[in-house]
Design a protein around this nucleic acid. Sequence first.
DNA 1: GGCCAGGCTAGCA
DNA 2: TGCTAGCATGGC
Length: 318
Amino acid sequence: MFTTRIEMKPPYSFDRLLRRLESHPDDQLRVDAENRLIRRAFRLQGKPELVTLQFQGGDEEPSIELTAVGDLGQAQQEELVYKVKHMFSADVDLQPLYDHMNQDQHLKPLVESFRGLRYLLDPDLFQSMIRTIIGQQLNLAFAATLTHRLLTLAGDSITAEDGTTFYVFPTAEAIARLEVAQLRELQYSQRKAEYIIDFARAVVDGKVDLDRLPHMSDDEIIAYLTPLRGIGRWTVECLLMFGMGRPDLLPAADIGLRNGMMIMYGMTEKPTEAEIREIGESWRPYRSYVSLYMWEAVGALKRKEAGFMELVDGLKGK
DNA sequence: GGCCAGGCTAGCA
DNA sequence: TGCTAGCATGGC
């Protein structure tokens, strides 16, 4: 057993994270809201390990108590701490973002509604890319279904004492070994199946080296990956945001972002890509986080969240 | 039943 | 360079 505590920069809202998970289901997580717990399997030095994360201290003094059931070696412990910090954006300082947003009448309500909301990142880049490709053009619920099926087909699993089975995301090697027909059976489209398997094979062959990405700029990464079939600008932007936590991306082609801007800017129809880029200029250098809060506006509206509904009605009047 | 989902490619002008 | 049909299925 291995236990440690991870201090997080305040504010961090566990409740906001849970609400976001309602509309963005993550099959690899098991949430116990009452006890402020998340359980998840991590692949550490290649081996699946079961981990419990307990959120403590409230929004303004947040920390995570992390417990791994198995006996972890030194390298596994370090990898786990790194991954959890990265995944929960533990070191991100939201205050400069909020100072910026509070000066903008369209953005200020988002700070009031969603204070403490952070990105929940993918723990590794390969997983992030595959999940993003799956998410292209599909509603989030169906994308989650397809991801679940891929996990059970090719992922490794570990079973907890209470009988719950946890899946870790398939390795590139495991997906590279699949045939298109196997994914077609899971209701993947022909093209999506090809994109995913081709990408995994490129990683295994070394044609794509994901370890290089942390040393590259956003634009360099976009130029490096978009030549691959099935990987367009939006997909790399999502990788940069949800896989790497890069702070200033604006996925202007994103339908959710367009919907969010329509709400917060009181528009009667969806903004065009050009309009998004123009408005997005005023969000620099925090465009990734403002985008996250725009997406959450869409989520809160769908959930008919009390408080937010009235706020949106107020925006329409302006 | 029709339209839209946190897009992308191929094919055509 | 710019535009569009087609993709697979679910949810409203």
